[in-house]
């Protein structure tokens, strides 16, 4: 096996990088892939909580890099999906505990063992971000359909190009179809027109995501909801499948859709 290293980043904080990482990891593992996710947000770790693995941390990323444990010892295996592993971040240190070349070395050591390495980047454009993109083969930029998040995504995409890690691919997270329809939220075309990068997925806003994150059970692991499906689709696109983009209006009533049909054909 030679793993592909995927870094999930955004520039702006709070757009859903960690949620996306957890869900993509879960979705890839569900597809039978062997996945390790690494929390590169040293000092502000979250990924363990969202994956529900917080209470099983013994060793962390900094322990591996500073040689206090072997790589294997820091890999926490998810009991629900046996092909899913987490290397948590250290909570008591900061970004300077790790350098970009440490991350490259770590990923190279992992590559023969697994299919996918997902790296959850911290917000910002400083050391932590550079640590996270140094080993990347693919960079996924997460943004929300909001002007400030898109602005930061644009900056990040520029930096990724400058580091020759591009072209980045885009995940638009927390889209509210209802607001877009009223014209109160940027739509997908507005975002793509500005960022001019390939779109790999659109995740609708879904309360269930928050509920699941609090429970430590990523939506992509658990049954039927739109956000979970959207993450599964992104995972399948990473695997090279052609998956059509979801119709985010699909669960609207019949009359709504009928009305829309007449509106669009009437124009």
């Amino acid at each position: 096996m030679t793993a592909t290293v995927v870094t999930i980043t955004s520039g702006k904080g709070g757009v859903g990088k960690t949620t996306a990482t957890a869900n993509l990891a879960a979705a890839l593992a569900t597809e039978g892939q062997k996945v390790v996710c690494i929390d590169a947000d040293i000092g502000l770790r979250n990924l363990d909580v969202i994956l529900g693995l917080e209470n099983r941390i013994v060793y962390d990323l900094v322990d591996v890099i500073e040689g206090r444990c072997r790589l294997r010892q820091a890999m926490i295996r998810d009991k629900r999906l046996p092909e899913l592993y987490l290397i948590p971040a250290a909570q008591t240190r900061d970004k300077s505990a790790v350098s970009p070349s440490d991350m490259v070395r770590l990923c190279n050591e992992l590559r023969p063992e697994v299919d996918w390495i997902l790296l959850d980047s911290p917000a910002g454009i400083e050391r932590g971000f550079r640590n996270a993109i140094a080993p990347a083969d693919i960079v996924l930029v997460v943004t929300n359909p909001e002007v400030s998040a898109v602005r930061d995504a644009d900056r990040i995409i520029g930096l990724i190009e400058a580091e020759e890690k591009g072209p980045a691919r885009l995940i638009i997270n927390r889209l509210k179809p209802e607001m877009v329809r009223r014209g109160d939220m940027l739509d997908i075309d507005d975002v793509l027109e500005l960022l001019a990068v390939e779109l790999i997925g659109v995740v609708p806003d879904d309360e269930q995501v928050v509920v699941s994150a609090n429970r430590g059970l990523p939506v992509a692991m658990d049954g039927n909801n739109q956000a979970g499906k959207a993450f599964k689709n992104i995972a399948r696109r990473l695997l090279g499948h052609k998956v059509p983009f979801m119709d985010l209006e699909a669960n609207k009533g019949f009359f709504d859709r009928l009305a829309r049909f007449f509106r669009t054909t009437g124009e």
């Binding site: 644009d154 900056r155 520029g158 500005l194």
Partner: peptide, 24 residues
Amino acid sequence: RTLRSGYRLENTGHIVVIGDVNPG
């Protein structure tokens, strides 16, 4: 090229950009 947020071009003469100049 496209100038993304955070880029800054300075020149004492003229500047011609073939591409977009994004906010920021």
